[in-house]
Design a protein around this nucleic acid. Sequence first.
DNA 1: GTTAATGCAAAAACTTTGCAAACCT
DNA 2: AGGTTTGCAAAGTTTTTGCATTAAC
Lengths: 138, 138
Amino acid sequence: MASQDWQTTLRAKGYRLTPQRELVLRAVERLGHATPDEVLGAVHEESAAVNISTVYRTLELLEELGLVRHAHITDRAPTYHSTATPDHVHLVCRSCGEVTEVAPEIIEPMTAKLLDTYGFVTDVGHLTIFGACQNCAR
Amino acid sequence: MASQDWQTTLRAKGYRLTPQRELVLRAVERLGHATPDEVLGAVHEESAAVNISTVYRTLELLEELGLVRHAHITDRAPTYHSTATPDHVHLVCRSCGEVTEVAPEIIEPMTAKLLDTYGFVTDVGHLTIFGACQNCAR
DNA sequence: GTTAATGCAAAAACTTTGCAAACCT
DNA sequence: AGGTTTGCAAAGTTTTTGCATTAAC
């Protein structure tokens, strides 16, 4: 059922089902958070050869369809994650690089205030908070 | 006085005072938020020729010294801003690109909770919140 | 005079694009 | 069959690096 979902979403907009698209989506789901390059690597481990440009095009497509999202967790490449996982905020430690996923509820007081004061609707799924984790903070 | 500050900071760590470093720092202060490329452009307008690689090296140095900071406001290049301006959070509208600066107090409830729950110390100056501004939200 | 910093040019890393061949429907 | 998608290769961007020259101290 969930496995049909993405197929339906693709077809709904007239896009075709290809093994590459399935492989990329699966890789993103499996990896949790991954750069285009890491997605390519993961797909290759599946003993499948997909071109890097296809990975880029596919990630763009999947994001347009709302099946994946990206966030800027490192200073370099964007990292993609599946939207099948519930929305979450990323806490990224500047020292050790650890990434913690946090339920969006924790920032609800803030999003409420931003809406209230500025009429700003926070895109929770895209939020990355940098700082120092418990271990590195002291 | 403030104009001496950065000179002192540089010397304190044994770095040298160069016109390029002053030009880059001034450009960042003047521009508010700027990519390395925009900094280069601004410096050139000062009728001074500074190489792009010097801009990169200088921004890195200034950041190490705590004189500038960077945040990821767009999906592409990082934007640098002076730390002379008080810490602030960036609200970025995904539709129109508008960037609003917000006092850190507004997110204090969130940072408190993150500290409480995860021992996570939020780096407020680096925080960029994506979403939809008042005009674009509806 | 020493040593760090700059400019330049080349390389590296990352992403995009054009086009013919292959594949989905 | 017909139009979309892929692979490949080449080009575009952005950032980094090595090294000789220049400039700060």
